[in-house]
Computed example of a mutant assay.
Amino acid sequence: MGNKIAPSILAADYAHFAEELHRIEETGAEYVHIDLMDGQFVPNISFGADVVASMRKHSKLVFDCHLMVVDPERYVEALAQAGADIMTIHVEATRHIHGALQKIKKAGMKAGVVINPGTPVAMLEPVLDLVDQVLIMTVNPGFGGQAFIPETLDKVRRVAALRKERNLSFDIEVDGGIDHETIKLAKAAGANVFVAGSYVFKGDLNAQVARLREALHD
């Protein structure tokens, strides 16, 4: 469960996805984080499976797909065919989280589960043995560029404790407001996958990802 950095394509230049994916690869980042939004679960619309499929032609990166959509189980087959590697879904978005995660695994993808800042960790507990990744939102989902919510670190600590108690091995991912300072806090709390959007794309991408790596080693 080594540390992984996942630049968020949501903060990239949408007109040049192929070039942006190549730039991400050059940084040595392990993942590219892809947010899929339907305008219902969150008040924003982003990408669908067809865009993921078009990106897949230009990259061998791990596609870490975070679905902010109602009834995410509807998109499992399309995302699997599009070339997604990890499909992470919200407990708040489906009445059948256990079955939805099983469906993701059956389709050949890694399965992730995510909670919003206002959702208790208890909502995750029944499915922790099913998942490859737990994502703790460190901002409210839907838009990039938001400030990190410090109280979400308690959730990271709780999930890390549950992982140890149950002798499980899933990754713990954080998403929202991650920079060279908050990444240290998230790592200390138990996270090992770090999504960064506006922070890495606002300047030189290589330099910003390198700065995050340096912070992880401080």
Score class of each variant (00 low, 15 high):
104 I>K: 04
71 D>H: 05
48 G>P: 12
93 A>M: 06
96 H>F: 14
95 R>N: 15
73 E>Y: 07
56 R>I: 08
70 V>W: 00
50 D>N: 02
110 K>E: 14
111 A>P: 13
185 L>C: 01
5 I>R: 04
30 E>F: 05
19 E>Q: 08
45 I>Y: 09
201 F>E: 00
131 V>F: 03
164 K>L: 11
34 I>L: 13
29 A>V: 06
51 V>F: 11
117 P>E: 10
59 S>N: 05
154 D>C: 05
38 D>G: 13
20 E>G: 02
194 F>Q: 02
117 P>Y: 11
24 I>K: 03
176 G>A: 07
186 A>V: 03
95 R>P: 15
23 R>T: 00
55 M>V: 02
35 D>Y: 09
14 Y>L: 11
102 Q>T: 05
83 G>E: 03
126 P>G: 03
106 K>A: 12
136 I>D: 01
113 V>S: 04
115 I>K: 01
70 V>R: 04
149 I>Q: 07
141 P>R: 02
200 V>N: 01
120 P>R: 00
215 A>R: 01
57 K>N: 11
168 L>W: 12
8 S>G: 04
57 K>E: 15
156 V>A: 06
53 A>S: 13
151 E>Y: 14
126 P>D: 06
51 V>A: 08
30 E>N: 13
72 P>I: 11
211 R>C: 13
1 M>A: 13
134 V>D: 06
155 K>G: 14
71 D>S: 07
62 V>N: 13
105 K>P: 10
13 D>N: 14
94 T>V: 06
72 P>E: 11
152 T>A: 07
2 G>M: 12
55 M>S: 02
145 G>L: 05
203 G>R: 02
81 Q>N: 13
200 V>C: 05
76 V>G: 08
14 Y>V: 05
56 R>A: 06
73 E>P: 01
53 A>N: 00
102 Q>N: 12
200 V>L: 00
151 E>M: 09
18 A>D: 13
58 H>K: 02
67 L>H: 09
54 S>K: 12
70 V>D: 07
130 L>S: 12
119 T>R: 01
144 G>Q: 11
144 G>K: 01
188 A>Y: 01
91 V>T: 15
45 I>R: 05
124 L>P: 09
102 Q>W: 00
12 A>Y: 03
97 I>A: 14
145 G>F: 07
171 D>K: 00
146 Q>L: 09
144 G>A: 14
176 G>Q: 05
147 A>T: 15
83 G>F: 04
123 M>K: 08
44 N>S: 14
59 S>E: 07
176 G>N: 09
185 L>S: 12
61 L>V: 06
121 V>M: 04
132 D>Q: 04
169 S>V: 05
155 K>H: 14
93 A>Q: 11
84 A>K: 09
204 D>F: 00
215 A>Y: 05
150 P>V: 13
180 H>D: 15
127 V>T: 11
70 V>E: 15
35 D>R: 10
184 K>P: 06
201 F>P: 07
64 D>I: 05
171 D>C: 02
108 G>M: 10
14 Y>A: 09
140 N>W: 13
189 A>P: 08
218 D>H: 15
164 K>M: 01
140 N>A: 10
200 V>Q: 03
35 D>M: 12
194 F>H: 04
48 G>K: 04
128 L>D: 10
158 R>S: 14
176 G>L: 04
206 N>A: 10
108 G>N: 06
183 I>R: 00
20 E>I: 00
1 M>H: 14
16 H>R: 05
107 A>F: 04
35 D>K: 10
50 D>V: 10
